[in-house]
Amino acid sequence: MNFEKLDVWKASAQLSAELYIELKDLRDWGFKDQATRSGLSIPSNIAEGMSRTSASEKKRFLNITYSSAAELKTQIWIGQKVNYLDKELGTKWINQLDIISRMLTGLSRSLTEST
């Protein structure tokens, strides 16, 4: 499966790029690093997982991806609370992560059904 055609990969790669752009001037390097790394791991793990040959390996990577989305959601929430992130932008990203998480669940289910 060509991961680049997956809407979930496209959405998560776009979100990751937005994180890098928005946080580029943040002085709290630890927070910035953690948020951008968890954001980057979402499309990266989709790519790596969907490049695997077995459905079980693909699903394992999608589970890791789902966890990274939850991690990023937490970091965005905290970023809003400490005023690192605009509330409106943070809410938009959290909503995008909810959609991405549902898409990951659907993709994982489709792998189960196809085996």
Rank of each mutant, 00 (worst) to 15 (best):
M1P: 09
F3V: 06
E4L: 11
L6G: 06
W9Y: 15
S12H: 04
L15P: 04
S16W: 03
S16M: 08
E18C: 03
L19E: 03
Y20M: 07
I21E: 14
I21W: 04
E22S: 11
L23N: 10
K24S: 15
D25P: 01
F31I: 08
F31Q: 10
F31L: 12
D33W: 02
D33H: 13
Q34K: 12
Q34S: 07
T36C: 13
R37L: 11
S38M: 09
G39K: 07
L40A: 15
S41Q: 05
S44H: 03
N45Q: 01
N45M: 05
I46K: 06
I46F: 05
E48V: 07
E48N: 08
G49K: 00
R52M: 09
T53I: 13
S54G: 03
E57P: 00
R60Q: 15
F61L: 12
L62K: 02
L62A: 04
T65R: 07
T65I: 08
Y66F: 13
S68H: 03
A69P: 00
A70F: 08
K73V: 01
T74I: 03
T74H: 14
T74K: 12
Q75D: 01
I78F: 12
Q80M: 15
V82A: 04
N83K: 15
N83C: 06
N83Q: 14
Y84C: 12
Y84N: 11
K87N: 10
K87T: 13
G90D: 02
T91C: 06
W93C: 02
W93S: 06
Q96Y: 07
I100W: 08
S101V: 02
M103I: 02
L104M: 07
L104H: 02
L107G: 03
R109Q: 14
R109L: 11
S110Q: 11
S110T: 07
T112Y: 09
T112L: 07
S114Q: 14
T115P: 00
